[in-house]
Simulated assay, not measured.
Amino acid sequence: MQLAKPVMRGLLSKRLRFHLPLAFGLSLVAAIAFKYAVTEPRKQAYADFYKHYDAAKEFNAMKEAGVFQSVRPSGE
């Protein structure tokens, strides 16, 4: 009994016909999942933070704590 020879001609194109659309589809699904699982919540968290953020109040708190070397606290 002899084994049949493997068909090598056109093997790459035959495999690519299946794997290339699969790879594109999976990468598209991964990109969409990353967008809605990571970037959208992060953008919402930034928006919520800056909705109530007062930069002047934060600056005055850091100034009173002595964080800045070129700004004197208002108590002196």
Rank of each mutant, 00 (worst) to 15 (best):
K14W: 12
K14F: 14
L16F: 04
R17C: 07
F18H: 14
F18V: 15
H19L: 15
H19W: 15
H19I: 15
L20S: 03
L20P: 01
L22R: 14
L22H: 08
F24V: 10
G25T: 01
L26V: 07
S27N: 13
S27Q: 13
L28D: 11
V29A: 11
A30E: 05
A31T: 08
I32H: 04
I32M: 07
F34T: 15
K35V: 06
Y36A: 03
Y36N: 07
Y36I: 07
A37M: 10
V38L: 09
V38T: 06
E40L: 15
P41W: 00
P41V: 00
P41S: 00
R42S: 08
K43A: 12
K43L: 12
Q44I: 06
Q44L: 05
Q44G: 02
Q44A: 14
Q44E: 11
A45W: 03
A45E: 10
Y46G: 05
Y46V: 12
D48I: 03
D48W: 02
Y50D: 02
Y50A: 01
H52R: 11
Y53K: 04
Y53A: 09
D54N: 09
D54F: 01
D54K: 02
D54V: 02
A55H: 05
A55K: 08
A55R: 05
A56K: 14
A56L: 14
E58I: 08
N60Q: 15
A61K: 12
